[in-house]
Design a binder for these strands. Structure first.
Lengths: 232, 232
DNA sequence: CGCAATATTGATTCCGTTCAAGGGTGGTGG
DNA sequence: CCACCACCCTTGAACGGAATCAATATTGCG
């Protein structure tokens, strides 16, 4: 359970905001952090709850979602190794505005808020780096507002499939390294489960993708790219 | 044109990230900033362009939007006195990802990027305050993704009307302090202009709002609130 | 093995878009 | 000053994309 992984070999240390951290700061974080394992389905934190630290993902995949008034989830992001979560609530001293739930077994470290605040105040590069991270998320969110408002479900599904591939990659056989239920896919795209199923089998019969159970392989990226109308 | 207003009496100094600024820093900003007037319709910066500083609004109202592949605008935010814009591009060293356009004559100051970076690195409270601002926007954006994916156009229009009132207030007679074309309203809600027109006249005939040209007055907030299904 | 969760397919309904046509308004220049 | 034009607003009719409802099929876990 508490076999705390070393931050030195943590994916976060290389690709994330923590790349700006000094060895001394690192030692301090090592002392302050705690780590836990989560299984698929486990909730790390829930919308509305108070959290007093940020979560740093060592391994695994999480979905980050908001729950609508009728209980329907809207997935607004994923988080994987090297990502940090919960900084929004910590920085703003507000309850969490999303729920984070494991969709693959995960090992996650918890760093108390005080450590983060210290870092921001004393390490300008860390602050800057964290800001850039948030800005990226903001930009993505704004893009998605536009897409969900202007594109058809078919176009958005194409876009989401491409995003999943870029974000999580593929295995030896070319299948996406992330498996989602049809309902989860629908909760990203912002549509009904049945619509996702229908469109997936359309894509399948058009030879654009290969589907085997929950495993999906993109067979014609050019087609999907053109369909999704996103040029970046 | 360049009758630079004093930051001391600028609305930004009180309510915004600049409230954390020291007198010395303030003097420095005064020296470095430049200001200009914009008329309704003027574009402050355009999506894709490079900007090397942030814009600080002294007065006026802007719409911030993204343009879809078919040229349709999606408004993702408004900016008014005291707000700052463009920090995303500055922080990330990337081209602007939105267009900012005046919908009311505006007086806007421009602060070079270098000043902002200095402040972030030397004034931890400024960094923190800026981060909180971005986090707020991120939260709002994520909420809106959920809404646009799950709510009907009618519900979203109700929500937008309430947001406009909270954000811009009303005049003596209770009319919204912001006037938008039907098309602009549609570009916030994420729908067709005709739909907005139809729904507005529905609300009107239901006695929920009073409409006179571009001026709108909310007559039954309780109804709109309940309809919008947003409880915050 | 059996149950619960997930996936699939069909039929139907409806919300919202699109297309089309007409009316109003405000600004500008002769 | 007012005529004209561009822009905005409005309403109607028809279509269509996607949601919903319903009935099975399949999967995978305990």
């Amino acid at each position: 359970m508490t076999n705390n992984p070393n931050c030195k070999q943590c994916p976060s240390a290389i690709n994330s905001v923590f790349s700006t951290i000094t060895p001394e700061e690192n030692t301090f974080i090592e002392l302050e952090k705690t780590c836990s394992n989560y299984k698929r389905g486990d909730v790390i934190y829930r919308e509305g709850s108070r959290i007093n630290g940020v979560f740093c993902i060592y391994s695994g995949i999480l979905k980050i979602y908001k729950t609508g008034s009728d209980g329907k989830e809207q997935i607004v992001a994923f988080a994987k190794e090297g990502n940090i979560m919960g900084y929004r609530s910590v920085l703003s001293h507000e309850p969490a505005c999303t729920t984070a739930q494991a969709i693959e077994d995960a090992l996650i470290c918890y760093i108390p808020a005080s450590v983060i605040f210290d870092l921001i105040k004393t390490n300008g590069n860390f602050a800057l780096s964290l800001m850039q991270l948030i800005c990226n998320e903001l930009n993505q969110a704004n893009s998605y507002i536009k897409d969900i408002a202007q594109k058809t479900v078919r176009e958005r599904l194409a876009e989401v499939l491409l995003m999943l591939e870029t974000n999580f990659g593929t295995n030896d056989e070319g299948f996406l390294n992330i498996t989602l239920t049809r309902e989860e896919l629908a909760n990203i795209v912002g549509t009904a489960t049945e619509s996702v199923i229908r469109l997936l089998s359309e894509f399948k019969s058009e030879g654009v993708i290969i589907v085997s159970r929950k495993f999906i392989k993109l067979n014609n990226r050019v087609f999907l790219k053109k369909l999704s109308k996103s040029f970046n």
